[in-house]
Write a protein that binds this DNA or RNA. Structure first.
Lengths: 95, 95
DNA sequence: CGGCATCCTTTCTGATACTG
DNA sequence: CAGTATCAGAAAGGATGCCG
């Protein structure tokens, strides 16, 4: 359990996963636009960590200019119930 | 959503909630014993934060020596689906 | 027993500049 | 566009000592 906690720990981990849950495949720039306030650094860093935790997959189209997309891996999709439960809780929870 | 993310952010937040989910009411000392590695400081600090976020309730029995118990609040119980989903994911996820 | 205060270290995050 | 590198500040966490 501690392991899962660590995997989703980080200011933007869940928000990123949420975006990839709402949109199956997202380009880096779009991901960034959809996460107001995130810095270039944290976006990349978190994406790298999520990737090495096998929760997301990075697809490099090898184009020029660069085009890279991210999506939930099969393992990552196992988190959907967590994401959904979190969203539900959030929705039923006025500040 | 950001708000919920912040509420469960912290090395021991989810582990604490998990313990209170497994055992409806827990004494401080027991909570501490059940969370190997947690420091006195972080336990208290996280409990305070969870309390001010209304996820748990603190019951002071006003005894001497002190006896204090913590439990999930009604609002906190709304997190059960999240906890359960997290546990399931964790269980289905070998390192 | 449960908790507070302090100090210190580690980790995290953001800003900025630069690259292919 | 996507990413790396570096630096500095902020925040998180741990150790210790003390109290009612």
């Amino acid at each position: 359990m501690t392991r899962v906690v660590r995997m989703i720990q980080g200011r933007w981990k869940l928000p990123i996963l949420f975006r990839l849950y709402a949109d199956p495949s997202m380009r880096t720039s779009r991901l960034r636009r959809d996460l107001p306030g995130i810095s270039q650094k944290m976006l990349t860093q978190h994406l790298r960590e999520l990737e090495s935790d096998r929760l997301i997959e990075r697809i490099d189209f090898g184009e020029k200019p660069p085009r890279v997309e991210y999506q939930l891996s099969e393992a990552g999709k196992g988190l959907l119930p967590v994401l959904i439960a979190t969203r539900n809780f959030s929705a039923s929870h006025p500040a």
